[in-house]
Design a protein around this nucleic acid. Structure first.
Lengths: 361, 361
DNA sequence: GTGAAAGCGCTAACAG
DNA sequence: CTGTTAGCGCTTTCAC
């Protein structure tokens, strides 16, 4: 095989003037370049670059010059060039799964996107959203993510499959998972809320109100949140716990309704119901109403998450506040440390929930 | 800026230029480059590039060679380099406004993000989300967007201010607005639904059911949708229209409740209520219930959008389906044509709504 | 068709 | 502190 043709032969002079250059687009746009700024400010490209990157080791006077040249020219850095030269892209992926169609309207999702986007921009980065189709998730995504398109990734995959997680955990890509990733608690960074404590607190409240036959519609038990909230309920009910008082849901309104109906058949005498999500609480309330129970007089109903649905409920839902926004901010913080090499290993954060009393319990 | 990720020192020997090169990072990562592919396939960089970009003017045999080299090496193109060389970024911004805090949970938003992201990836592009703070929107955003960071933008700004729109309309950036941009109908591309026809159809349905005193909680009248839905209502009620039967809302649950209460005070005898959004319909239903009215027996209630809230309602809401997903797909189609120069001017699309009967009317 | 080479605009050594 | 310079990896003429 022939020897590798080396790149550019050294440029003879410094900038050979306006010779008719043969190849390439001459100047794709008329955007000013760093060169223009340098010329106007009477400094070199390097100095402008330094100013652009924080201005360390630059004399204030020159810095001012450069800045006003930038201002005058309306210059703004070319991301592509910067990425190419610096070896980082300046963007972060938000990976979401579309496994289940009815999760599409998840309000957290929109909130996450907004907070991520805002926080990243504060740090000079961009948010790139990657909606994973069911199938591609296992194949395309890990490759894509580790292919250098982004500097890091934020993952919010409910009941995420191990394959993707495993791949990603192996890759060197800085990563933060929203929620505790079952099976990868130790090797990955994540931020979650204290689901168990929240559930415990809510059930304890129900008990303190004189309710004693407390049912629960749980979240999916193959997710950490579903599991932990159930665990909190189980522990708080203590000796009063009976498996038949619980029904597994999937966070959806419908599953709340169905779950509550089943429980009512087995235990018509329940006087409280703890749903592991507000949406399921709404569904449960519908089932209770249909069965002729009044909320909260006959059956107190409590939710979890303090989502928009909670205030929409009739009566408004007593629930545990889930600090989505704080979680998102924290995730970006961690990711930032990871990407900049400030973290020495995976980091985990657990945020507390807070009790929100309304009228349903 | 902090430490860069591991940066291999130049491999002497392996490459033709064993001289200790002075400047620049040698090879940021060990990702294979187009050069590696070329070598393995026994062709030149140029040929690989051609294959990468559609394979036009490349002999099938060579193309196969190149493709298997790509496969073998796990090569994937470096976006930054491509962008720099080609002058386009490959990404598209989704601009959202945060003007009103309580719009944060807008379910459409999440849906848009997902559909945009999916559709763009199908076309080899990325979605970059830009959440605009109130203040920066007027200054930062137009600059940022026209600064070449993205190839185009999708805008979903409720009651968007003219300044931003005007700036953007002037810039050469390909743009598609979700919803009809008041005052810029002609010069910008947009995709919207036929709000007026939808409202008319719904009110006509109410009339056909024997309802005659039909009230309405409208959307904000400074938005095109708010206006058009109100207009549809006004026209459909015809001679029965009375301004006092309508109350202006802001799409929110609360405004629906308040609006309905006010209407009830003035017109205790209404037998139907058309809310310009499902959320407002929910609020209105709460007000009606509080006033001792049964839905739909005493007062039929209709919503608009067919959002998740519609199915959550008690009773489930009769509403007009708003084709959010189709709108999003259409928007990406238009933007794509715009970016690739296939469109000769702004393009507008209006999608129809469809009637969805449930139990509230 | 295909190879060769000229940059795209920027960063980060390196030398002063 | 500041100027100089060598690429980052790719696209795209331009010749052949």
């Amino acid at each position: 095989m022939s020897s590798r043709p080396e790149r550019r032969p050294a440029k003879p002079g410094a900038r050979p003037g306006p010779l008719p250059v043969p190849g390439g687009p001459q100047r794709a746009s008329n955007r000013p370049t760093i060169e223009d700024v340098a010329r106007l400010a009477g400094v070199s490209r390097g100095t402008v670059s330094r100013v652009l990157n924080g201005g360390r080791h630059v004399r204030p006077a020159l810095m001012a010059n450069v800045n006003s040249a930038i201002e005058a020219l309306g210059y703004s850095v070319n991301q592509a060039a910067r990425s190419l030269a610096a070896g980082r892209t300046g963007s972060v992926a938000f990976v979401i799964s579309e496994h289940r169609e009815h999760l599409v309207e998840d309000p957290n999702f929109g909130l996450f996107v907004k907070v991520f986007s805002r926080e990243l921009r504060l740090r000079g980065r961009h948010l790139l959203v990657t909606a994973a189709q069911d199938q591609e998730e296992e194949t395309f995504l890990p490759d894509y993510l580790s292919a250098g398109h982004v500097d890091g990734a934020l993952l919010a995959l409910p009941r995420m499959g191990e394959p993707l997680l495993a791949h990603l955990a192996d890759s060197r890509l800085p990563l933060v998972v929203m929620g505790r990733p079952l099976g990868f608690d130790a090797e990955l960074s994540w931020v979650a809320i204290d689901d168990e404590a929240g559930a415990t607190e809510m059930v304890a409240y129900l008990l303190s109100q004189g309710r004693s036959r407390i049912a629960s519609v749980t979240g999916p038990l193959n997710t950490s949140s579903g599991r932990d909230r159930f665990e909190g309920y189980r522990k708080a009910t203590g000796k009063g716990f009976r498996a038949s008082l619980a029904a597994e849901g999937d966070w959806s309104l419908l599953s709340g309704r169905v779950g509550a109906s089943h429980i009512l058949e087995r235990h018509p005498d329940i006087d409280a119901l703890f749903a592991a999500s507000d949406l399921m609480a709404l569904g449960a309330m519908a089932a209770l109403r249909q069965a002729g129970r009044r909320v909260p007089e006959d059956v107190a109903v409590a939710g979890f998450d303090d989502s928009a649905a909670a205030t929409m409920a009739e009566p408004p839902l007593t629930t545990m506040h889930n600090p989505f926004e704080e979680s998102a901010v924290e995730a970006v913080n961690i990711l930032d440390d990871l990407m900049d090499g400030r973290a020495d290993g995976p980091r985990q954060v657990v945020l507390p929930t807070t009790f929100v009393q309304r009228s349903s319990a």
